[in-house]
Amino acid sequence: MPKTVLIVEDNELNMKLFHDLLEAHGYQTVGTRNGIEAMDLARRHRPDLILMDIQLPEVSGLEVTKWLKDDSELKSIPVIAVTAFAMKGDEERIREGGCEAYLSKPISVGKFIETVRHFLGNA
C-alpha cells in the first residue's frame, strides 16, 4: 500500500509541483491550502508525512504544526516545513516550532525527494 503525504500549500502552482513530484515517485497525496482543513485531513487520512507551507491564509503553518504536535494521535506524523521564508534564523525558528525538517523554496527536486524518502523510505 502506497504511503500517503498530506500537502498543506496555498500556492496552486507549488501544490501541483509537489503533487506531481510525489506521485511520480509513487506516493499518494492529499492536499489543502487551508490550515484548519489540514487538521481534518490529517485525522481522516492519517498521512505518513506532512509537507507544511508556513504562510497560509487564516492560520499559519507554524500554528497548525503546533496543533498537530499537541494532538496525541497526530504528533507522531513527521512534518517537513517547505517555505519561502529563507532568511537568517527562519530555519531555527521553524524547527523550534516542531517541524522535523525544513526545506526552503525554491526547492531542489533531488533534495526534496531525498528528504521525503528519509522519512518514508522508498514507496
Binding site: L13, L17, A84, K105, P106, V109
Partner: peptide
C-alpha cells in the same frame, strides 16, 4: 520572489 521561483525551478 521565492514562491514563483519554486514553481519555475521545480517544474
Amino acid at each position: 520572489l521565492r514562491t514563483p521561483l519554486n514553481a519555475i525551478i521545480g517544474f
